[in-house]
Nucleic acid binder design. Structure first.
Length: 319
DNA sequence: GCGTCCAGGTCTACC
DNA sequence: GGTAGACCTGGACGC
């Protein structure tokens, strides 16, 4: 457990529209940062690593979707320099999508037969991300070839045993493990303790590569040429097309055997018979239809399956 | 109870 | 360059 006695507090005015509830608590249950974060009465307590520092985070809602205002506080082990404090604040604002303008995506979505429903249902929901790729990369490896329930069990064990626990504001919240920690864990230990199976070796190999050679942050990838960012991600061990699309800040279209059912129904009116075989065709159709907004389209649709099922008279299932 | 199948992919060997 | 097969584990299913 790591105590975080120092804190920085400030006000954030996100680019409207910004729905606090939809952004912090995605309808499909995706966490903001930590799988163990707490959300009560429009306040979220969570933890992550920002610029290499373990950070406890408390954000509360002080505004409305069209006039958003948030009260944020970052808790740290040590008092940061003024320069570092400025960077931490700016990075957190970026990670929670406060600087993201949804306007261009909404313009495209209004003219799309599927997305026009989703942007109405989820008005003001922003995309969020952690500071580095390792949490999402670990997540995507733990999602491989397993039912969601088993992936959740693997993640819970992995985070509680190997993640740092942030203690702040009378809360204790474990963050996703750092590559430097996992690089020193034997794959056999990870496999037996958390029943990761073959994924243990992949996650340790990935951690060792990042710990030894470094890797650009999410924001640095964002500023790269999209093809170069994708190439770097695909070069990592254990990361294939699906995982790269989950991590890539330039936005991919991460189709797996589950989403192949959903998007097969949406695009062609039927679930594919051979899901794995159909993934390339479904992916190509999505990328062609939504281009650079493919990730946002994917994100909005998977968060809105219940409403979309009714609006489009289709059986779009969560699992 | 027991055997078989397969799940929110990726890598490797083989052709 | 394209593709079958292996990979951990555990729940669902048929018998």
């Amino acid at each position: 457990m790591t105590e975080l006695p120092f804190s920085l507090a400030w006000e954030i005015k996100p680019v409207p529209p910004y729905s606090f509830e939809l952004t912090m608590r995605k309808p499909a249950g995706w966490p903001l940062f930590s799988n163990f974060e707490v959300y009560e009465n429009e306040v979220i307590w969570t933890s992550t690593h920002i610029m290499g520092e373990l950070a406890g985070i408390r954000i509360s809602n002080e505004g409305m979707t069209e006039r958003p205002k948030l009260s944020a506080e970052i808790f740290l082990q040590r008092k940061p320099s003024p320069q570092k404090a400025r960077n931490l604040k700016r990075t957190l604002e970026h990670d929670i999508g406060a600087d993201e303008d949804l306007g261009p995506f909404y313009s495209l979505a209004k003219g799309d037969d599927i997305l026009r429903h989703a942007i109405r249902d989820l008005h003001g929901m922003h995309n969020t991300s952690q500071d580095t790729i390792f949490p999402d990369a670990s997540l995507s490896i733990l999602l491989q070839m397993a039912p969601l329930k088993r992936s959740d069990e693997m993640m819970d064990c992995y985070i509680t045993n190997y993640g740092e626990e942030a203690e702040f504001d009378r809360k204790t919240i474990p963050a996703w493990p750092l590559p430097e920690r996992i690089a020193h864990v034997g794959p056999e230990e990870l496999a037996s303790k958390c029943k990761l199976g073959y994924r243990a070796k992949r996650i340790v190999e990935l951690a060792r590569r990042i710990a030894e050679h470094g890797f650009p942050s999410i924001e640095e990838l964002e500023h790269m040429d999209p093809d170069e960012a994708k190439r770097l991600l695909l070069d990592l061990p254990g990361i294939g097309s699906y995982s790269a699309d989950i991590i890539d800040p330039h936005g991919g279209f991460p189709i797996d055997v589950w989403s192949a059912d959903v998007f097969g129904l949406l695009f062609f009116g039927e679930e594919p018979k051979d899901k794995r075989k159909e993934i390339p065709r479904i992916k190509e159709t999505g990328l062609k239809r939504w281009g650079k907004w493919s990730w946002m389209a994917f994100f909005y649709i998977v968060q809105d399956l219940g409403n979309l099922s009714r609006a489009l008279d289709l059986e779009l299932r969560m699992e």
